[in-house]
């Protein structure tokens, strides 16, 4: 096992995913196998290679003109929201 249960619990927390007690060993096992599998990349000789973030190397970011193109569609957009009041999205209390 390349990953411990504690590590997987940490990852699940960082990713905000609840994993049941019963499922945890399954994830520890499969994630370990995946990490072992991708480990083979370490053997590749990449000295001096520039990392590639984008498939088309010659493309650059296009700039949008600074113009307001949107109108208020709050009501429509909030139809998908699980909980709203007074135009706000409601969540359990945010503690700062």
């Amino acid at each position: 096992m390349s990953l411990t249960r504690t590590q997987v619990e940490g990852i699940a927390h960082l990713a905000r995913l609840e994993i049941s007690e019963a499922q945890m060993p399954v994830y520890v096992d499969s994630l370990s196998r995946i990490i072992d599998f991708v480990e083979q990349l370490a053997a590749a000789d990449t000295a001096g290679i520039e990392p590639m973030a984008h498939p088309l190397a010659d493309q650059v970011q296009r700039l949008r003109p600074d113009a307001v193109s949107e109108t208020d569609q709050r009501e429509r957009f909030q139809q998908n929201a699980p909980s709203v009041a007074a135009g706000l999205y409601l969540v359990p209390k945010v503690i700062e």
Binding site: I11, L14, A15, L17, L31, L41, A44, T46, E50, P51
Partner: peptide
């Protein structure tokens, strides 16, 4: 999601994500 979270996390980014981007270039 968990695989991705792990390979981007502090201490693993270079070994996995950055290395993968270099392999992608190869």
């Amino acid at each position: 999601i968990m695989t991705g979270t792990y390979v981007l996390s502090a201490g693993y980014y270079d070994a996995y994500y950055l290395q993968a981007q270099k392999c992608r270039a190869l």
